[in-house]
């Protein structure tokens, strides 16, 4: 996997990121390339899901498109404006249009602040409305996420459940009526019954606020439910990007196929060893393999994979792009149930 290139970009997008590179410093002068030449775009009204395991760079990607912090190189266009070139005030104005929801609802809310103040804060920062107008907007926004300002407004985050805190986080993100919502593992810390509530809420909010979404998760089932297109990442690179049904029904990258085969299904069966599956674990991002970064675990790897980095290319089906020298054939065996 581990490909570069921009063949998959659609043009005419609300958000367009190209050639993003982000390197973190590690001990001993070493460097971790968390994001290595990643490009993506999202058209208005679309939900792009990003899946990947630890170290794939998916959270770094979420932050990079918001310039939180700015990556080392690359460019992001949002609503036709360059994000990274924007000066402080202009960047702040852009950020009002692009908001983020984080994984851990409790630690992303200030424990000392009341719920009303937390949701009102973005309005204050943006200098919107009078006190009375702000009070009305906060109440309406809380109502749209299923919370009553009269009940929760004066409470503090630790007095709410995890699911309620995540609703507050979403309300805070929606209160400025952004056009882009970036969600980084928004339901990973929640129990399954509460997770379903929050996922439905995000779908409702998307319709009500005409949102475009970048949705990051390690849970392939969750991503399937909410995304129009899905991008699979591995060690800071894009493996595969395709319309949701196409990706899940006919994964073409060996890593995507491995991921899908690893998810335990709800059908009781004693799973036997999966012969075609990649074994082992993700190598250290401090010492990434040459060529295709997945080759050390890939059952199909050849000598070419070590030498030459695969480029992202279309593989026949519409909108289905893969960075692999040996993409899987579309066969019944790659189809899931």
């Amino acid at each position: 996997m581990a490909g570069s290139g921009t063949a998959h970009l659609q043009g005419n997008a609300l958000l367009s990121a190209s050639h993003l590179v982000k390197t973190y410093k590690a001990k001993g002068g070493r460097r971790v390339q968390a994001l290595s030449d990643v490009s993506l775009d999202i058209v208005r009204g679309e939900t792009l899901g990003v899946v990947g395991e630890s170290g794939s760079g998916k959270s770094t990607l979420a932050r990079a498109v918001l310039a939180l912090p700015k990556p080392d190189s690359g460019a992001v266009q949002f609503e036709e404006k360059p994000v990274f070139d924007a000066k402080a005030a202009a960047l702040r104005a852009l950020r009002h249009r692009m908001q983020m929801v984080f994984q851990d609802p409790l630690s992303s809310l200030n424990p000392a602040h009341r719920i009303f103040d937390i949701v009102e804060m973005p309005l204050l920062v943006a200098g919107r409305g009078s006190a009375a107008e702000r009070r009305r907007i906060v109440a309406d926004t809380l109502q749209s996420v299923g919370l009553d300002v009269d009940i929760v407004g004066n409470r503090r985050p630790y007095e709410l459940s995890g699911g309620q805190c995540q609703r507050v986080s979403i309300a805070r993100a929606l209160v400025l009526q952004p056009s882009l919502l970036v969600c980084d593992e928004p339901v990973s810390a929640l129990d399954v019954s509460v997770q379903a509530q929050v996922l439905n809420l995000l779908e409702d909010a998307k319709a009500a606020f005409s949102l475009t979404m970048l949705f990051i998760s390690h849970d392939l089932g969750v991503v399937k439910g909410i995304s129009d297109r899905v991008m699979v990442m591995y060690l800071g690179k894009v493996c595969e990007i395709a319309p949701t049904d196409s990706l899940y029904a006919t994964p073409r990258h060996p890593y995507t196929a491995t991921l899908l085969a690893s998810v335990p299904s709800l059908v009781p069966r004693r799973r036997e060893e999966r012969p075609t599956m990649a074994r082992g674990e993700t190598p250290s991002p401090l010492d990434v393999p040459s060529g295709c970064r997945f080759r050390t675990r890939c059952p199909a790897a050849t000598e070419r994979c070590a030498r030459e980095e695969p480029q992202i290319q279309n593989v026949g089906q519409p909108g289905h792009f893969v960075a692999c020298h040996h993409p899987l054939a579309v066969t019944a065996s790659t189809r899931l149930s």
Partner: peptide, 22 residues
């Protein structure tokens, strides 16, 4: 509980049945 689990074989953009409350 079984119904509220997002599955790999379920369709996209379908409302998940939820368990209300906590």
């Amino acid at each position: 509980l079984l119904e509220s689990v997002p599955r790999l074989d379920s369709a996209s953009h379908v409302r998940l049945p939820v368990i209300p409350g906590q």
